[in-house]
Amino acid sequence: MKELLVTRGLGLEIDRKNIIRDVDTSLAVGEIKGVMGPNGAGKSTFLRLLAGELCPTSGEIALRGEDMTSKPAREFNKSGISYVSQRPGPFPDLTVEENVRGAVQRGSLFSRRSVRSKVDTLVDLIGIQAKLGLSARELSYGEMRTLDVGMALASEPVLLLADEPTAGVSGDVADEIITLLKGLCRSNDGRRFGLDGLIFVEHDKGTVFHLADRVGFLREGRFVVEGSPEEVRENRAVVQYLAEHGVD
């Protein structure tokens, strides 16, 4: 299987504390990977390393064979990695339309027509037409998260990283976001904004086992187990963790 993303010995040390230790993992083309684990295990940090927001202190990251490790965050985006962070990211003082346009226009700063059509497609995709003129701070939490996903897709990424995209969002909207993400990965048949891979962090075990092809269980900065949802569900550490936190 062709690999989209590979990490080798990835580590992050802050103030002599190892937040992420020696992580070797990979993501195949077309694969959806769910990351779970207890609080403070380093899930968000792991994603931020992959997004280029943090710079690892050891190891390397490669996207489609290209070394990304020492590149600045913007190069991650240009190479096709997009990131939905844990906190809502739309610019609060800009309108919804400006938020989307700002995310879209980077590749074609002065071609108004192509920006226009891409904005329209994205707005249709995430279904936020009615709110275009509002400033982002006026949106509900769920709408902000949806807008986040839309903005992350704007650069037509190959790999999307999503940090708890549905946490704190009401059930209906959460389902919509999950369906959207799943659709983007599953039907990559010439559709615009199709994805080659998705890595997401999620607290809700139901979502993880339902959405992911492979699941990684992260504890104290390293993957204790990685495998198919069935394998991971059987693992002792995971069983214990699920028992402590209520099984779905």
């Binding site: 913007r74 985006n77 610019f91 800009l94 346009r101 700002g102 700063l109 650069s155």
Partner: peptide
């Protein structure tokens, strides 16, 4: 203009604009 939009994005959240691919 599009450049002005990037200015305002940087005002809102520079790191976020960087993550969206801009050389802020």
């Amino acid at each position: 203009s599009p450049v002005g939009l990037v200015f305002r994005m940087i005002k809102g959240d520079r790191e976020r604009a960087e993550l969206l691919g801009y050389w802020t």
